[in-house]
Design a binder for these strands. Structure first.
Lengths: 72, 72
DNA sequence: CTAACTATAATTAGTGT
DNA sequence: CACACTAATTATAGTTA
């Protein structure tokens, strides 16, 4: 079960790419939550992907809008 | 040199909090880059913190604005 | 398709310079 | 302050169910 080191280029196989996305987007949103909680900061994130109809957002729709509106 | 397990609550000590932020925001942006590169997706992220004058953004100013504009 | 498992890679808290 | 080190934790690729 050795795990290959990850090469940072597009995962060509569509199934592998989707599986990787489904794992990694959770890890990514978790990191956002941790950074927000541990430190005294404000994050907004939007993820568009072909793998879900709605974009994934952090921390939530309203707060994300507000954070982005501050950005010029 | 044992390392404590991280407790997910605000880091009270301001120096520790800043150091943690400076490490973690890099890790976070790296995860965003990886997710974008490995999978076929679009991310926009903004981080506001007391630790830098300008917000940190991914992938860049223009693309972040464009991604946000798609979000309603 | 989803979810659990687990060995290994990647991140990072604590420390030192 | 910034950067380097490294032990320990955390994330995840590959696999199995």
């Amino acid at each position: 079960m050795p795990r290959n080191k990850v090469i940072f280029y597009l995962i060509e196989n569509e199934t592998h790419r989707k599986v990787s996305y489904k794992k990694r987007h959770i890890g990514f949103l978790k990191k956002a939550q941790e950074l927000t909680t541990l430190c005294d900061i404000e994050i907004a994130t939007i993820i568009y992907s072909p793998y879900s109809d709605e974009p994934k957002v952090f921390p939530n729709h309203g707060a994300t809008i507000n954070t982005f509106l501050k950005f010029k």
